[in-house]
Amino acid sequence: MTPESHAAAAARLTGRRAGSERRVSGAVAEVDLGGGQSVMVKRGHGPGAAGAEAAGLRWLADAGAVRVPAVRGGDDVWLVTDRVATGRPGPQAAARLGRDLAALHAAGAPAFGAAPPGGPRDAWIGMAPMRNTPGEDWPHWYAEHRVLPYLRQAVDSGAMPAAGAAAVERVCDLLPALAGPAEPPARLHGDLWNGNVLWGADGHAWLIDPAAHGGHRETDLAMLRLFGCPHLDLVLGAYREAAPLADGFGARVPLHQLFPLLVHTVLFGGGYADQAVAAACAALAA
């Protein structure tokens, strides 16, 4: 049986006649629906991935804070969203992004690890499975459900040496003391690296590909710093003006970066294990 094309999925899920498609990647294509409208059509890479992303986009949109592409259709396999016309990053858009992120986080979540309404417990971050298991205490929840599951996978695959794993485990043991002041659960994008920020032609930043869940707001900000972001100083400055961060945020950045670095270690191996160990050592030295 021939797999359904991106254009055919777009037509079925939107009820519109689909025209040409332009492949963006193996999983994503831009499809012309006529009348000047184009949509992005994405094939989920695992069970529940498309539905989890759709639920995350809707949850972020419901906060009325950040700009995300509207969901136009979807099922267990496919997700159809509006296409965002892209431009260049600028200082005004960066400052606006900082303020919008502060408002998104303030919209809150029922618990740390809470999934978006209608979203599955077994979700994804990028190509890696991510389980949304609620918890009330951030340090223990972060260790049990965000750090240790990926550390165990990295060790089992041989990507993480025993000495490095011991440093990460030491961080988990000391998390209550390293975490800073307690904060309520924030509504997170959850995979907020620069590649998931589109600088729109309309002068706004748009967020795509969320791994949305309830978490600590510093995790989104630390992830945004991990691989670089244009005008990051303006993003963080505007965020702090709208929602001041607890003292010591800079020293806690490596702690929050442990999660995405371990995910990358599981997915890609290589030097990410070294980066994760370096982050663990920096967190311990803070």
Rank of each mutant, 00 (worst) to 15 (best):
S5T: 15
H6D: 01
A7R: 14
R12S: 09
R17H: 11
R17I: 07
A18H: 07
R22V: 14
A27H: 15
E30Q: 14
V31K: 11
D32G: 14
G36H: 14
V39Y: 10
V41C: 12
A50R: 11
G51A: 15
G56A: 15
G56S: 12
G64F: 15
P69L: 09
P69Y: 14
V71S: 09
R72G: 02
G73H: 10
D76E: 15
V77C: 13
V80N: 09
R88K: 13
P89K: 07
Q92L: 12
Q92K: 13
A93E: 10
A94I: 08
R96M: 06
G98W: 09
D100K: 05
G108T: 03
A111K: 05
F112Q: 05
P116G: 04
P117D: 12
P120Q: 03
I125C: 15
G126I: 07
G126H: 12
N132S: 05
G135H: 06
E136I: 00
D137R: 12
E144Q: 10
L148G: 02
P149F: 07
G158W: 10
A159V: 03
A163L: 11
A163H: 14
G164M: 00
G164K: 04
A167K: 10
E169L: 08
R170F: 00
V171W: 09
V171E: 04
A177N: 00
L178D: 04
G180V: 06
P181E: 04
A182H: 12
R187A: 05
G190L: 02
D191I: 09
L192Y: 04
G195H: 01
V197G: 07
W199N: 04
G200Y: 10
A201M: 06
D202C: 08
G203F: 12
H204F: 03
W206I: 00
L207I: 09
G214D: 06
G214Q: 05
H216Y: 12
D220H: 07
A222W: 02
F227E: 05
L234Q: 15
E241V: 09
A242I: 02
L245T: 02
G248M: 07
F249P: 06
F249R: 09
L255I: 08
Q257C: 13
F259V: 00
F259T: 01
P260V: 00
H264S: 13
L267C: 06
G270M: 02
G271D: 11
Y272T: 00
Q275I: 02
A280D: 09
A282F: 02
A283L: 09
A285S: 15
A286H: 07
